[in-house]
Design a binder for these strands. Structure first.
Lengths: 335, 335
DNA sequence: CTGAAAGCGCTAACAG
DNA sequence: CTGTTAGCGCTTTCAG
């Protein structure tokens, strides 16, 4: 077994409490002389702090936990980078646990893994919690915040403004002269899809366009959903522009359009939602409404800090991170 | 604060140890009658186990830790899926911490995050540990295993056989009739690149081909490295086939070839190494030597289990996971 | 500045 | 089957 604080104390000839003070940098409470001896002994003994013991007595730790849906989302990495950077800056450690969002049972295990130890906060990345598990989370009294998804109730979250995303994407195409614009692979009913759809309709209605039902092809944001949507539009579609629900969906639309003999952007303009690096490795490169995932991670960590510091009532529970449009090669002016 | 085992004991009128027994499912040691009452009370009180306390006394936990290089690798997710599945099957929990492999300091923090608590094992995903940090890891006495990378020393790892990868990729092109074959974006000196290069040379020498220096363009496996390599080969390259060091590198080669006016696979065949989903979303779809990343995760967990069970001497420290070739659209017969 | 002592929440003998 | 006791490794009063 690893050496303990007592071993060091014995070796140096001081009390365990003194060793603790040195090793926890409670300066002012020891001479640099004893500090040296203690540190020296610690090194020799290969001492490693037992955080379980520390957390047990302090009842808090400096670790932030992120729970991530294991469904492959290519932007999760960016959010995690943001969390990591901000956490590290403030001296927190980050641990992440993956959870298959499909199974409430798996979800619960993931959640318990972090709840059952004194983490300072929990960040949930695009994960749809079951009611039971949400209850579990609330009961834990650990500050939490959802990232990259929103809700109608008062749960704290930080995400992009999905209404704005739908609106901006649509407006971008309108300003390029497009009138018949499709919305592909979007999930119509849950919060995110619903708002994007609303933004789409809003932009359209401002120029007096009423979208046909067939313009809106719902789906699950996946590559395959993109392909299916494009297939449904067909080779002879009246659409001249398409908004894809995600980068992967956009690539699906793009590839299927090509399969159908359509040339992008000549015959069809495509604008994607997300703006991950995927947009830049396909040809033509995809114009996108880009979300600032990194920033979501940063804001999420700050959100946790605030929950710790302030009373719940003062908190601005639901925060939006701005989006911006990256014009690349998949869109062009429509005459 | 959350309720403790004592609160439950008081409420039900039994001893804390009894509560502990019920809650830890030490069946045989209590009547179903008391069990009911205890569980009922636990539910009412919203009891949550304090793992810090458990781990402190048991000196071991059921969590496996994965340390992942935060450099974006699109296969890390697959490895983690494999770890997760196998861990979950055996009742372990997985926590992952991200570490920027560039900074030894960051690395150390990540490592300490997991070493300073009683995890049952540590899996390291394509992370190049500094000497100090490797020492730290060894000292911890926690079983560990590197995944998706190999070493010349006796460190435990599980990876693909990189010599075989280089050999198979090259041989595949040779059998298609190619004679002038390039190797792009590979890191020549470290273990992985060195072995792949050796496999490449071996296959070539078997058919009496000696590669020119210019055929081998080293790089860092990235998209950009792929582009640079293709650019170095140039529009009028004598090569008819190229092996790319990774999927992203292959896409870089592919796009740059197209930029140069070369058609794939008509003018140039490309075979990629990795075989992630990226291969299927580009056009043409990329032929690849596919690694079984998921399996690496699975084997990694088993490796940890074995280290716990057996004496170090008996262990087969370095394990290879088989690769296979997926022929897709980016390669064709060369006359 | 340092030591002694108490205790975080839980489990594991040991008696009964 | 259940209660009593001790203690995991650390921090934190409280004295001195």
């Amino acid at each position: 077994m690893s050496a303990t604080i007592k071993d060091i104390a014995r070796k140096v000839g001081v009390a365990p409490s003194t060793v603790s003070r040195v090793l926890s940098n409670k300066s002012k409470y020891y001479t640099s002389e004893t500090a040296e001896k203690v540190k020296e002994a610690a090194r020799e003994l290969g001492y490693k702090k037992n955080q379980a013991a520390v957390e047990l007595v302090k009842k808090q730790s400096n670790v932030i936990a992120a729970v991530v849906s294991s469904v492959k989302t290519n932007f999760a990495g960016q959010i995690i980078d943001g969390i990591q950077a901000e956490a590290s800056k403030n001296g927190y450690n980050l641990i992440v646990v993956y959870s298959n969002s499909a199974s409430a049972e798996e979800q619960k295990k993931a959640l318990l893994t972090v709840i059952e130890r004194p983490v300072m906060g929990i960040l949930l990345l695009s994960i749809a919690l079951s009611d039971d598990n949400l209850e579990l989370l609330k009961e834990s009294d650990i500050p939490y915040c959802f990232l990259s998804m929103g809700f109608d109730d008062d749960r704290p979250f930080v995400s992009s403004d999905d209404l704005e995303i739908g609106y901006e994407a649509t407006n971008f195409l309108i300003e390029k002269g497009h009138r018949k614009i499709g919305l592909a692979a979007i999930d119509k009913y849950p919060y995110t899809g619903r708002l994007r759809l609303a933004g789409y309709k809003k932009a359209l209605s401002e120029v007096n366009i009423i979208p046909k039902d067939s313009w809106i092809q719902s789906g699950d944001y996946s590559y395959n959903a993109g392909k299916l949507a494009m297939n449904a539009y067909g080779k002879n579609t009246e659409l001249t522009g398409i908004i894809a629900a995600s980068d992967m969906a956009a690539i699906g639309v793009l590839n299927q359009a090509r399969n159908l003999g359509l040339s992008v952007p000549k015959d069809l303009s495509i604008i994607s939602i997300d703006g991950t690096e995927m947009c830049q490795i396909v040809q033509p490169q995809l114009t996108s409404v880009s979300q600032d995932f990194y920033q979501m991670g940063v804001v999420g960590v700050r959100r946790i800090e605030e929950s710790l510091a302030k009373e719940p009532e003062i908190l601005d529970n639901q925060q939006m991170v701005p989006v911006h449009i990256n014009e690349r090669e998949s869109t062009q002016i429509q005459n």
